[in-house]
């Protein structure tokens, strides 16, 4: 058992354990922190398979942006998660059954790939060979040539998401006082300052 295998089991165990803690911990903030731990360990697993670019992207995007956003949402929304979880036991039987079915399916499927010798042979070799070039260069080469179509489509999907967010949340309030910069800049001492002669002891 080499060092790589040792690290694999370390990362895998911590990933599964922290994934469990995400749903088991009582405090939602702790849940998010466990989620971040799970992301870090998944990144470690990517690193072990030689996909260093994906590993770093996972940390930058998921930990840096998504998880932090989660944390904001959890802290800003006043959701009583303890109350939401009260019916947890009630749904345990049916949830458990579904979980067991999925587990059996996974075992079947993964078992088939071990038993079926063809499964490994149909896997397509990565182009170009990963031993020759770095993984970020390989992704870049493919993403902007062969997969440009998919790349552009994803761009349009993101545009739709943006339009959707604006349509559903933006509201123009008319009862709010707003800053008018042009007016502010155009002000000069003549119209802003008036001189009063104040007699001593009287005030204005």
């Amino acid at each position: 058992m080499g060092v790589a295998a040792l690290f694999f089991y370390l990362f895998a165990t911590v990933t599964v354990a922290s994934a469990f803690m995400v749903i088991a911990s009582r405090n939602p903030v702790h849940s998010v922190l466990f989620l971040i731990l799970a992301f870090f360990n998944a990144a470690g697993l990517f690193m072990l398979t030689g996909a260093e670019f994906l590993a770093l992207i996972l940390i930058v995007v998921y930990v840096g942006a998504v998880a932090v956003l989660f944390l904001f949402v959890v802290m800003m929304l006043d959701v009583d998660f303890a109350e939401m979880r009260e019916g947890f036991l009630q749904y345990l039987p049916i949830g458990g059954i579904i979980g067991i079915i999925l587990l059996v399916e996974l075992i079947f499927v993964l078992g088939a790939s071990f038993v079926d010798p063809q499964a490994a042979s149909v896997a397509v070799q990565p182009i170009p060979d990963l031993a020759e070039t770095s993984n970020i260069k390989a992704i870049g080469d493919l993403l902007y040539t062969r997969y440009i179509f998919f790349f552009q489509l994803s761009g349009i999907i993101l545009l739709i998401a943006m339009i959707g967010a604006i349509v559903l949340t933006l509201s123009h309030r008319t009862d709010v006082k707003r800053q008018n910069i042009a007016d502010q800049v155009a002000r000069d001492p003549e119209e802003a300052i008036t001189m009063h002669k104040v007699k001593p002891g009287e005030g204005i």
């Binding site: 998919f150 489509l153 349009i156 999907i157 998401a161 959707g164 559903l168």
Partner: peptide, 21 residues
């Protein structure tokens, strides 16, 4: 499969927003 998924998501995402417009 990738075109299928991207097309489907593009359609669905717009439909979700339209349903709640």
């Amino acid at each position: 499969m990738i075109t299928l998924y991207l097309g489907l998501e593009m359609q669905s995402l717009a439909l979700y927003v339209i349903a709640a417009i």
